[in-house]
Simulated assay, not measured.
Amino acid sequence: MLSPASAAVVRATLPVVRAHAVEITGEFYSSMFAAHPELLDLFNQGNQADGRQKLALAAAVAGFAEHLLAEDTAPFDSIAERIAHKHVSLGIRAEQYPIVGHHLLTAVGTVLGDAVTPEIAAAWHEVYWLLACRLIAAEARLYQRGDLDPADLWRRWRVAKRLDEAVDTVSFTLVPDDGGTVPDFAPGQYVSVAVDLPDGHRQPRQYSLSQGPGRGSLRITVRRVRGHDGTPDGAVSNHLHDHVTEDDILLLGPPAGETTLTSGDGPVLLVSAGIGITPMAAMLDHLTRTQPTRRVVLAHADRSPAHHALRREYAQTATGLAEADELHWYENDHDKHSRPGLMDVDALPLPPGTTAYLCGPLPFMHAVRAGLIRRGLPAEHIHYEVFGPGMLDRD
Rank of each mutant, 00 (worst) to 15 (best):
A65V: 04
V16G: 02
T278C: 00
H36E: 00
A301V: 15
L135K: 01
A70V: 13
F76A: 05
A315T: 10
I99Y: 01
V297F: 01
L163C: 02
V170L: 05
D242Q: 11
L392M: 06
K54N: 14
P352F: 00
E119W: 08
D178W: 09
T181I: 14
S272G: 05
H328M: 15
A8N: 01
V225T: 01
P187H: 09
H239K: 10
A137F: 11
R224T: 14
G320M: 09
H366A: 10
L2C: 11
P267S: 10
P183A: 06
E165R: 09
K54I: 14
A140F: 01
F364M: 13
L348K: 05
A121T: 07
C359N: 12
P340C: 06
L90Y: 05
A56R: 02
A60G: 07
G214S: 03
P361G: 04
P351D: 02
A7R: 11
Y207R: 02
E95C: 06
H87R: 08
K161H: 12
A347R: 14
T73M: 10
A80C: 10
E23C: 02
V271E: 01
V191I: 09
L327G: 13
Y384F: 12
T106N: 11
H381P: 00
A347T: 13
D395H: 03
L55M: 05
P255L: 09
P37I: 02
E331K: 05
P150G: 10
